[in-house]
Structure formats: structure tokens, C-alpha cells
Computed example of a mutant assay.
Amino acid sequence: MIQSPRFPPLLTGEVVSRHTDPFDKAVSRAIAGVDSGTIFYSEAPDALRAALVLAPETPLEEAILAVYVAQVGLAESLGALAPPEVPVHFQWPDRIKVNGAVCGSVRFAANVSDPDAHPDWLVIGIDVPFIPASGEPGENPNQTCLYEEGCVDITPIALLESWSKHTLLWLTYFMDSGFERVHNEWRPRCDTLGKMIDYPRPGLFVGLDEKGRMLLREGVMTETLSLIKFAEHL
């Protein structure tokens, strides 16, 4: 029997069936009016799949910055549980990387898409594979999973517990003092920062502005790209 995860104060958990996507469940329950701070999660042993429902009190442009909070929370939880030589990085806008290869992603959705509108809810989901989805280990050098990176002593439930604690801590920092502290923690973990990239479009990834938007330089022009563009539209 799988032990139920322990969540920090202000957060509660609700398990979903093996055949249900926690993100989809979180969105449907958010639409129905579930409490903010509810985490929907799967008990599947091959991956951590979970989604957190938030009820922001700010416009979407500011609320969407919680996606960075969830990424920092995941990086810190992996840092606490994984062997010390296992580096965790981000690839904007939504990829998690372990030892230089993609190892999971974040998803996010809200009930509005206008940056100035106040969302009723924001759902942020994470998906981190523990074992290869298919094929032989190492078959795709750009994709990895936690067990291939030496994290054999971590379980999805343990990572879920840790992610919930670290994410709540960083949500508190974010709400108390704004984006700067989150940005300072996120920036050194982004391994494409300062480099030429092809996705989401070609250019030099200069950094993030104070609103968390990507600054992408192509020639003499610099444009901004918001995470809002990558939210799942319902």
C-alpha cells in the first residue's frame, strides 16, 4: 500500500486514479470551485504527475509568475533528495533538465488569457519521469529520467512532498516581496540564458524582464515573450 503524502499547512492533496491526468482533474475541479492550495496527484510509480490549484488575487500577468515559483520549488526539492552531483536546470518556458537532458516539464492554465484580467484560478502541473517511457535507457540522449541519473532512492511521493513544501515556501517569498527573489533563484538554473536558441523562436535569449517575460534579441531588435502565450487554452 502506498503511503499518503504529507502536505504542509495551507496545502491539501487529492489522489486521482491511475488513468486520470492530475492536470486535467485539477482544471475541471478548479472550474467547479475547488479550494486554492489543492494538489491533485497520481500514485503511479513511474513518474511524478501532480497539479496545484491557485486562486490568484492579481492580474494574470503577475499571477503567471507562479510558474517560475513551481520550477524553483521542483529544482530545490530535487536538489534536496538527489545525489549532490546531479544538476537541475530549466529550459524556457516549460522544460526541466537533469544532467543536461530533458527530464519532465511544467504545464499551466488559467480561465483568462488577457494579461490584465484577474483569473479565478491558475493550475500549475508538473510531470517528472522516474523510469524510461519507452525504448532502452539512453536511447534518446536529449531525454532522461530520474532513475537513469542515479536517483534510484527517490520515490514520486517523496518528491511530491518535497515539491509541495519548497513551492509553498517560494510562493510565500513571491507574495511577500515580489518576483525579484524568485528571479534571482531561477536565473542561474536556466541553461539557455545568454545563448542562441531555436525555440520558441530563433534568437539570443538575453534574460527575463521584471514581469518575467523572455527577452529575445534577433539582430538589433529585442522582443518580449510572455509565459501566457504558452498556457493551455481551454
Results as ranks from 00 to 15, higher is better:
Ile131His: 15
Ala109Pro: 02
Ile39Cys: 09
Thr58Asp: 00
Tyr147His: 12
Leu10Ala: 13
Ala82Gln: 06
Gly212Pro: 03
Val106Leu: 15
Gly100Leu: 02
Gly219Phe: 01
Phe174Ser: 08
Ala63Leu: 14
Pro132Ile: 13
Ser17Ile: 06
Asp24Trp: 07
Cys103Lys: 01
Lys229Thr: 08
Pro93Trp: 01
Tyr199Ala: 02
Gly203Ala: 07
Ile31Phe: 12
Leu60His: 09
Asp127Phe: 09
Phe108Thr: 01
Glu180Thr: 07
Leu159Met: 10
Cys145Asp: 11
Ser36His: 14
Arg95Asp: 12
Val72Met: 10
Leu193Lys: 13
Trp186His: 12
Ala231Met: 15
Gly33Met: 11
Phe7Pro: 11
Phe230Ala: 08
Ser28Asp: 01
Pro188Cys: 12
Thr12Arg: 15
Leu60Ile: 12
Thr155Tyr: 14
Glu223Lys: 09
Leu216Cys: 00
Ser77Gly: 08
Thr20Phe: 01
Pro5Glu: 11
Gln71Leu: 03
Ala47Pro: 03
Ser162Phe: 09
Lys211Met: 03
Arg29Val: 00
Thr224Pro: 00
Leu159Ala: 11
Leu168Ser: 10
Thr144Tyr: 00
Ser164Pro: 05
Leu146Gly: 02
Ile2Leu: 13
Arg95Gly: 08
Leu227Pro: 03
Leu193Ser: 07
Pro87Asn: 03
Cys145Gln: 01
Tyr173Lys: 00
Arg29His: 10
Pro22Gly: 05
Met175Val: 12
Tyr41Ser: 09
Pro115Ile: 09
Gly104Val: 04
Met196Arg: 06
Leu81Trp: 09
Ala101Arg: 05
Pro22Asn: 07
His166Gly: 01
Leu234Tyr: 11
Thr192Val: 14
Phe205Leu: 04
Asp24Arg: 05
His233Cys: 00
Ala32Gly: 05
Thr192His: 14
Ala70His: 02
Phe23Trp: 04
Thr224Cys: 04
Asn184Ser: 07
Leu78His: 03
Ser226Gly: 06
Ile64Tyr: 05
Glu76His: 12
Tyr147Pro: 13
Ser17Cys: 10
